[in-house]
């Protein structure tokens, strides 16, 4: 019984809440820690990638753009699983 209770760990609301906090915490932690490390832009000292939080934003927006793009494209190219079933090749 205790085994099965332990196994439900990830379905508890409290765990989910905790994990959300950990995720937000990590994001903020790594942004915060950037204040203390010396960093240079890859394409010259004042290139855009030298600004604070550039990589966090890059990660956030690149994933967001990919998701949005996939949703838009998905509207046109998603078909039922049986779509090819009657084809000859």
């Amino acid at each position: 019984m205790s085994q099965s209770l332990n196994n439900e760990f990830f379905e508890k609301e409290s765990t989910k809440k905790l994990l959300w906090r950990v995720l937000w915490g990590l994001c903020i932690f790594f942004l915060f820690i950037e204040l203390f490390v010396e960093r240079h832009g890859h394409f010259g000292d004042h290139s855009i990638d030298s600004y604070f939080g550039f990589y966090g934003l890059l990660g956030f927006f690149s994933c967001l753009i990919c998701i949005v793009l996939s949703l838009i494209i998905g509207r046109f190219i998603k078909v039922k699983e049986e779509y090819y079933d009657r084809d000859i090749v």
């Binding site: 994933c63 998701i67 699983e81 090819y84």
Partner: peptide, 30 residues
Amino acid sequence: VTKMQMLMFSALVFFLFLPLLKRSNTISID
């Protein structure tokens, strides 16, 4: 640090937009 920022924010996007990523029984035309 920069790599971890990127990865953590990617993870954040995933869980924030999880409802949009719900799977369906479909295939994509390629």
